[in-house]
């Protein structure tokens, strides 16, 4: 389509009322990149992710994803994005299987394909034996796993993860890393926000550091994240 470039963001600003949350960000992301988004609480990470998936509207600036611009062509953009947010974005009174079937219908996945993908994903996130359990009875970690399955269900080109490690135990974190590596290897572009600097997924291509709504670092990750974060925020 538009070559290797997937995300193009220019002078992106977002205000909540008079309060600026993002101040004129520029960002280019190539297809297949695995990008880590670092920043303290309130630095604008979640806001940036919500803007990228079209849940929120920019105050000013340009967002183009896969050649389509937001918010005008949101419909086309939505089909290629998967989001794992703070909240699980699931229905408590439905089972894991029903939740995935519901979203499969909304993403217009072919009926023949639905069952196969759903069962595969349930297997991969380790919920195969709880497929018929109500989400209401799931622990935070299990809900997070199911959310991940929901985000991957329509095989998005772009996967946005907002603090995905929250609520996951060690096994869950390992599973997440494994799934992300697999998605990344199959060409999926990933942007993942985190403030847990001690855990660094394998194969990170790039790190961004946000501080008070501005991008203070955009580049490679050499060494550990904590050092990088300290340097970037200190120089800002």
């Amino acid at each position: 389509m538009s070559g290797r470039r997937l995300i193009e963001v220019q002078r992106l600003s977002k205000n909540f009322g008079w309060l600026p949350v993002l101040r004129g960000l520029d960002l280019l992301v190539q297809r297949g990149e695995f990008v880590l988004l670092l920043g303290a609480n309130g630095s604008g990470k979640s806001t940036l992710l919500r803007l990228l998936c079209g849940l929120s509207r920019a105050t000013s600036g340009v967002i183009r994803i896969g050649g389509w611009s937001l918010p005008e062509e949101a419909q086309a953009v939505r089909a290629q994005i998967g989001l794992l947010a703070h909240r699980p974005l699931l229905y408590e009174n439905l089972t894991a299987r029903e939740n995935l079937d519901f979203f499969a219908a909304l993403y217009d996945i072919a009926a023949a394909e639905r069952a196969r993908r759903r069962d595969n994903l349930l297997q991969q996130v380790g919920l195969a034996d709880r497929a018929d359990g109500l989400v209401r009875g799931f622990s935070r970690g299990m809900q997070q796993r199911l959310s991940l399955a929901r985000a991957l269900l329509h095989q998005p080109d772009l996967l946005l993860l907002d603090e995905p490690y929250t609520g996951l135990d060690n096994a869950g974190c390992a599973m997440l890393d494994e799934l992300l590596t697999a998605a990344s290897n199959s060409g999926c572009t990933i942007i993942m926000s985190t403030h847990q600097l001690e855990r660094k997924p394998a194969h990170i291509d790039r790190a961004l550091v946000l501080a008070d709504g501005s991008m203070v670092y955009d580049g490679q990750v050499n060494g550990d994240l904590a050092a990088l974060f300290r340097q970037a925020t200190a120089s800002a």
């Binding site: 849940l55 939505r78 699980p88 974005l89 229905y91 408590e92 979203f103 909304l106």
Partner: peptide, 14 residues
């Protein structure tokens, strides 16, 4: 409250 409205909004559904 469960955020599922956001999940609905994320889908390409009209």
């Amino acid at each position: 409250d469960q955020g599922s409205l956001d999940a609905l909004l994320l889908t390409p559904v009209s």
